[in-house]
């Protein structure tokens, strides 16, 4: 290994930081720890339902819609289905380029779903939207953006998505080493 004079070390470190990618993929393993095998009692991962993708590989999750996610700053994502008897819930965990891009994407989704500006509250990190036959819970935790989809609307849909989004948000906070 080549040795550099101590006085050049800060410059070298700066150069290495400049060369480093802005946001490396969080890795399938990290995302799997957020969407873990049994985040909610009674629910388990449906075999063969897990899909992971980064960059253009997000097409494996969103098909042609993936560019909307990469443009918004999604670096990689993991999608899986949880099953409880004949009930299903779909979870997708996205690692974003930054906590800011995660919050901006959440706000964008809020505008799409609710038709108005997102709450102007630094602590705002979740919302739920329910339409015909569908409920989606949206959340951010640090650089992670999480969606949970139930195939029911109204109270039943919220009863399914609520425990998942709380559990996954807690897992994301644990991964980031900070309180939820």
């Amino acid at each position: 290994m080549r040795h550099y004079p101590v006085q050049y070390m800060p410059l070298l470190a700066l150069a290495l930081l400049t060369l480093a990618p802005a946001a490396a993929p969080a890795s399938e393993d990290a995302l799997s720890r957020i969407a873990d095998l049994r985040p909610v009692a009674g629910w388990s991962v449906l075999p063969e339902s897990t899909a992971y993708g980064s960059g253009d590989g997000l097409a494996g999750i969103y098909n042609g819609g993936y560019e909307e996610y990469t443009r918004a700053g999604v670096v990689d994502a993991l999608r899986r289905i949880y099953r409880n008897g004949e009930e299903y819930v779909e979870v997708t965990v996205h690692a974003m380029q930054s906590a800011r891009s995660a919050r901006e994407f959440l706000a964008d989704r809020y505008r799409m779903e609710k038709g108005g500006a997102a709450p102007d509250d630094p602590g705002w990190a979740r919302f739920t939207a329910s339409g015909a036959g569908s409920t989606t819970a949206y959340a951010v935790g640090g650089v992670y953006y999480i969606t949970v989809v139930s195939y029911h609307d109204g109270e039943r849909g919220e009863a399914q998505t609520g425990p998942f989004v709380r559990a996954l948000s807690a897992n994301a906070a644990k991964l980031a080493g900070r309180p939820e």
Binding site: Y62, N63, G64, G65, M112, E113, A129, G131, A132, S134, T136, V149
Partner: peptide, 10 residues
């Protein structure tokens, strides 16, 4: 909205 996968407005 939110196609092709949704969920979105219908």
């Amino acid at each position: 909205t939110n196609g092709p996968k949704g969920p979105g407005k219908t």
